[in-house]
Design a binder for these strands. Structure first.
Lengths: 194, 194
DNA sequence: TACACTACAGACAGACTTGTCTACATAATC
DNA sequence: GATTATGTAGACAAGTCTGTCTGTAGTGTA
């Protein structure tokens, strides 16, 4: 039943994979170490050999998720639109694809920040960095589209962006992505130089 | 040092007051029963005589906070603006006043929903109800201002609203209220019938 | 073959959690 | 004044949590 050692992912990857799924679905505070080792089929000492502590595992998870999410998001936006001005709005189409995933439960970085409630936690800095890189990416799209007041516009788009994520999470309502895109379209048009 | 019994608030109120402060500041999962009884100067059995369980205390807290927050929000909006069209935008000025409070840590209902991660929890329904009443109130303002597509506009304003709350919480950035108001102004203008 | 490394399995400590129970004190009411 | 309500103080049970430790099995390498 269990795959052979060679075909199986490494112990570290199995731990991170299981932790990722559970942490996102149920929250970092609601998932214990024992759950993670049981579901990943790993010895407890193996976990503590690869990660200094649970907090370290959480921070590593967030770091990995930050990288992967950004790669996915960028690729999705660029798949959905090619023109710079279209790509600014396509971020909300990408959002919708995210919302449609059956296991969607909001932004892991917002959620973890709230759960940890501690700015000293290593995961908090990762979360802030995540939001900053999202800003940078959207800002680059806005600049490419040659829209006025790019910084202000980006900040406004981010409010729609984060708002949509939170409302979609709370109400299980995918439609908000469309509403956000409509609103963004009005804001973008107002900043068009044409 | 301790006030006399007669001048002191009731045991139930002291428990709720302490729980409210701690639950909001540190999160429901990070605050234990023992903390609450110690800081409110109450016996453990007194707490369990007034509340069936910790979950019951959480739900009661959210219910009380829902009522009080809505009363505060409505009063603040109506203090800041009188004309219907101004009141639609004044919701973001009220937001800013909220953000400026030193103990601001986002929306208790979003936070609790994330922490509990369980739609069956009695507090979850309270949170959904809270969001619905916010929608209803903003919708009533939009209707009074006689703007087009009131439902769609309200949904869009709520995205800015919730987005501002989350970003303000994450980044400790009060300025987002101004950005949200600017964006809302553009959306409202686009829906003006004049 | 011998050694080192990695992982498994599970006991264990110590701290923390919620909720119950008892014993005692104070306040209000008949 | 006696009784009933309510609150205090703290022990306690039963479970959870993180993190450490021991012993054993398997694998790769010298």
């Amino acid at each position: 039943m269990t795959p052979t050692k060679s075909s199986r992912p490494s112990v570290r990857d199995r731990i991170l994979s299981t932790a990722s799924e559970l942490f996102y679905k149920e929250g970092v505070n609601n998932v214990g170490i024992d759950r993670i080792i049981a579901e990943s089929g790993v010895a407890k000492m193996s976990l503590y050999n690869h990660f200094k502590s649970k907090d370290d595992l959480i921070a590593t998870w967030l770091q990995q998720r930050d990288e992967r999410w950004r790669i996915w998001f960028k690729a999705t936006v660029e798949r959905l639109a090619t023109e710079p001005s279209d790509r600014v709005l396509a971020i909300f189409d990408a959002l919708q694809e995210w919302f449609e995933q059956p296991n969607f439960r909001g932004c892991a970085f917002i959620n973890s920040t709230i759960e940890l409630a501690n700015p000293e936690h290593p995961g908090y800095q990762v979360s802030l960095h995540h939001q900053q890189t999202i800003f940078d990416y959207i800002y680059s799209l806005v600049k490419s589209a040659e829209l006025s007041d790019p910084e202000i516009l980006t900040q406004q788009l981010i409010l729609l962006f984060e708002g949509a994520i939170v409302v979609a999470m709370m109400q299980h309502n995918i439609e908000v992505a469309v509403r956000a895109k409509q609103a963004a379209s009005v804001l973008v048009t107002a900043k068009s130089k044409s």
